[in-house]
């Protein structure tokens, strides 16, 4: 499978900010709607792997990460398993972020199941 690398520090900002656009600059919502969703959607359709490189930023607020990953399910209704099949994470500087991100995806998936019922 082809791989597309998204390095947040390089392709978006070294200082990722809050969750929503209304809260301030460089928000998770901004990144998801302007870049991340289209890249991910394209990767799923064309069977590519999205490699998200989390290193190089000054640090993340937790809501930013929840919004970009959880938002793919909540707002764009992408399939949880499809996301897992097409996602690869790099986080050498903060390895614990990977556990958090997979949990954000799981939580968003479970919430979407509850909402659908």
């Amino acid at each position: 499978m082809d791989r597309i690398t998204v390095k947040i520090a390089r392709d978006f900002s070294r200082t990722p900010g809050p969750r929503y656009i209304k809260e301030g600059k460089w928000s998770g919502e901004q990144f998801r709607t302007e870049k991340f969703y289209s890249i991910f959607d394209d990767a799923i359709k064309n069977d590519k792997i999205v490699v998200v490189d989390l290193d190089g930023t000054l640090g993340y607020g937790t809501s930013f990460l929840e919004e970009i990953f959880g938002g793919l399910i909540r707002e764009h209704h992408l399939d949880y398993n499809q996301i897992l099949n097409h996602l690869e994470l790099i986080s050498n500087e903060e390895p614990y972020l990977m556990t958090d991100i997979f949990a954000y995806l799981k939580d968003a998936h479970e919430e979407s199941l509850v909402d659908n019922h």
Binding site: G17, P18, R19, L58, G59, E93
Partner: peptide, 19 residues
Amino acid sequence: VIYKGLQRSLVELMQNSFN
């Protein structure tokens, strides 16, 4: 150097105040 904890703390605090 990069202080990841500083950035996280500041963003969380500002966001808490905002919301």
